[in-house]
Amino acid sequence: TFVALYDYESRTETDLSFKKGERLQIVNNTEGDWWLAHSLTTGQTGYIPSNYVAP
């Protein structure tokens, strides 16, 4: 799992909003700078900017 370093507000319907400190499970990280992730807090799935999270 990864932890959010910053808050992120989604800009498209495929993005995932999250708050700093939220735990995220990475589903697919082969898309370059945008990873498909599942929030362990909200249960939602969407794309996140990879530079906003850390292991």
Rank of each mutant, 00 (worst) to 15 (best):
S17R: 05
Q25W: 15
G43T: 03
G46F: 02
R11T: 14
T14F: 15
V27H: 08
T1I: 15
P49K: 07
Q25G: 05
Q25M: 12
T42Y: 03
N51S: 14
L16T: 04
G46Q: 00
Y8H: 06
S10Y: 03
R23K: 15
E22M: 02
A54F: 09
A37I: 04
L5V: 06
R11K: 14
S39R: 05
Y52C: 07
Y52P: 02
Q25P: 01
N51Q: 13
T42Q: 04
E13H: 12
L40V: 07
L5I: 10
V53Q: 02
L24I: 07
T41W: 12
S50E: 04
G21I: 01
G46S: 01
E22T: 04
T12R: 14
G43R: 05
W35I: 09
S50W: 09
L40Y: 08
R11V: 14
K20N: 04
E31C: 13
L24R: 00
Y52S: 13
A4N: 01
A4R: 00
T14P: 05
Y8T: 01
T30S: 13
L40W: 08
K20Q: 11
V27Y: 12
A54Q: 12
H38V: 15
E9S: 11
W34F: 12
T12A: 13
T45M: 12
T42M: 03
L16D: 01
F18H: 01
F2S: 03
S17Y: 04
T41R: 11
W34M: 14
N28A: 12
T30N: 11
T14E: 11
L16R: 02
A54S: 12
F18T: 02
P55N: 09
T41S: 13
G21D: 06
A37M: 11
I48R: 00
T41E: 14
T41K: 13
S10K: 12
V53D: 02
Q44K: 15
L40P: 09
Q25F: 14
A54K: 12
R11N: 13
L5G: 02
W35T: 04
T41H: 10
T1K: 06
F2K: 02
G43D: 06
V3T: 10
G46H: 00
T45R: 09
E22Q: 05
A54C: 10
F2V: 12
E22K: 00
G46R: 00
E22S: 02
K19E: 06
E13F: 08
N28L: 10
A54W: 10
G21R: 01
G46E: 00
K19R: 11
D7V: 02
E22L: 00
G32Y: 08
L36M: 08
W35A: 04
V3Y: 10
F18M: 07
T42C: 02
I48A: 03
N51H: 14
S10D: 03
E9A: 10
N29E: 09
T14H: 14
T12W: 13
D7C: 05
T42H: 03
T42L: 03
T41A: 13
G43K: 07
T12Q: 12
I26D: 01
T1A: 08
Y8V: 01
T42R: 04
N29T: 14
N28G: 15
E31R: 14
T45Q: 09
D15Y: 12
F2R: 03
E13M: 09
N29W: 14
I48E: 00
H38W: 10
G21E: 04
P55K: 08
Y47S: 04
W34S: 08
I48F: 03
S50F: 08
V3Q: 05
Q25E: 15
G46M: 01
G46V: 01
G43I: 01
A4I: 03
F2G: 02
D15T: 09
T45A: 07
T1H: 12
T1Q: 10
A37L: 02
A4S: 05
Y6F: 13
T30M: 13
T14L: 12
S17E: 05
E22R: 00
W35Q: 04
V27P: 05
W34C: 09
I48N: 00
D15A: 10
N51W: 15
N51L: 10
I26T: 03
T45H: 07
D7I: 02
I26K: 06
T12L: 12
F18A: 02
G32W: 09
N51K: 13
D33N: 13
N51I: 10
G46T: 01
V27D: 07
V3N: 03
P49I: 04
G32H: 13
D33P: 12
Y6M: 11
T1S: 09
G32I: 11
V53P: 02
T45L: 09
T1N: 09
S50Y: 09
S17D: 05
A37P: 00
D33G: 14
Y6S: 07
T14K: 14
D7H: 05
E9M: 11
L24V: 05
